[in-house]
Design a protein around this nucleic acid. Structure first.
Lengths: 204, 204
DNA sequence: CCCTCCCTTGATTGATCATTCAACCAAGTG
DNA sequence: CACTTGGTTGAATGATCAATCAAGGGAGGG
């Protein structure tokens, strides 16, 4: 159908996505992006009025990519809703591991780098967090019967995001997965504590 | 004794500390710092070979300031060791509140902004985290009797740092304290679950 | 009074940055 | 073929940046 060529615009967004997550927004120059994408400045400024508009496109791409690029691969083989959450965390762990603890969550990095972001940028960062959180919430919602009555799936999902981002930050700072693994283990302890003690009848 | 004047060097460090935490390292120009400190570029480059060496001095200052500037004020009125931890978290909450959720943890911001920091910078960021973590660990250690046998104070302290940093990130991104408060509440649930159930004899 | 040492002054340098623009190209369309 | 439209080229622009440096100031010691 609308199968296009390797459109310049897309190459620019992809190059920017890569470089922003490698070096941050401020430390990535427009010429870095042009070199990586094999484009000229005129093309970039034909597609985007400004470097910041390119950032907006990148954040839109992340937002739209949560499901197909992140969750789909992470959840392919996992059925249990709570294990899906830990499979997702393990996916971040893998990214850290293969990059020697330098690649973390690109959204989190941008969120802390941009101290006074223009409203549309901040909104898209928040949208990304919110999208992620909602998918995790759905897992907890689906597993609700196994949790204690007061358990709040929305709050647990928010807490999961909190733990993931804090854990990634420490992994990158220490250049070690220790704190990350400990945080995930603690999160599991937390969820176990929220679980209804199954009557030790069946197989125990 | 060595009571000095408002030494230029100190004004520079203080100005840089303020500006780095307001706008980040990369977005703070040397001339911003000079203006804020009321100094000239020659003075800065007399005291520090490089902008990055000024960053090192700032990180050293944070490191040395953890106890007198952060813990002392936060813990003045609090005796219970576990409540000290929550008093510390409440201190970050206050900073967020008075700044409309823009000021968070300066170390965390720098840790995520500087993607490939020179080794000394990364080391000082890690030292700051480690110093913070150790003080929190001491609280949990002191309260150890009330926790279940397997409880690990070091891991709980690391988890507390994880939660604090993740919570600050979300507060800043959403420009709201909701996720922060939820994260702190969840952390308390976690610690409650780790606590030995007092025999319901006394007042219950 | 002079000399030395430490610190400051502030204009200057060269690099790099985001952005602009006139010219150009190629694919349609009539 | 003429003409428009959407996209590309890449040199040029002006701003801003970190860093430099020759010149000076002034306190203290002799």
């Amino acid at each position: 159908m609308s199968e296009g060529p390797p459109a310049t615009r897309d190459r620019l967004v992809y190059a920017a996505m890569t470089l922003f997550s490698e070096k941050g927004y401020g430390s990535t120059s427009v010429s870095d992006i042009l070199r990586q994408a094999g484009a000229n400045s005129g093309s970039l400024y034909h597609a985007f009025p400004t470097k910041q508009d390119l950032l907006l496109a990148v954040l839109e791409a992340y937002k739209g990519g949560i499901e197909p690029m992140l969750l789909e691969p992470a959840w392919g083989a996992v059925a249990d809703p709570v294990e899906k959450v830990f499979a997702l965390l393990d996916c971040y762990r893998n990214h850290l591991a293969v990059s020697e603890c330098t690649y973390g969550c690109p959204i989190g990095s941008l969120a802390l780098e941009l101290h006074e972001p223009d409203p549309p940028v901040r909104q898209l960062l928040a949208d990304n967090f919110e999208g992620w959180r909602r998918h995790v919430e759905a897992c907890f919602e689906q597993a609700r019967p196994r949790f204690r009555p007061g358990f709040d799936p929305a709050r647990a999902a928010s807490f999961t995001l909190t733990v993931m981002e804090g854990a990634v930050m420490q992994a990158r700072t220490y250049r070690s997965l220790d704190a990350f693994d400990q945080a995930v283990a603690s999160l599991r302890e937390y969820l176990d504590a929220m679980t209804i003690d199954h009557p030790p009848t069946e197989k125990d």
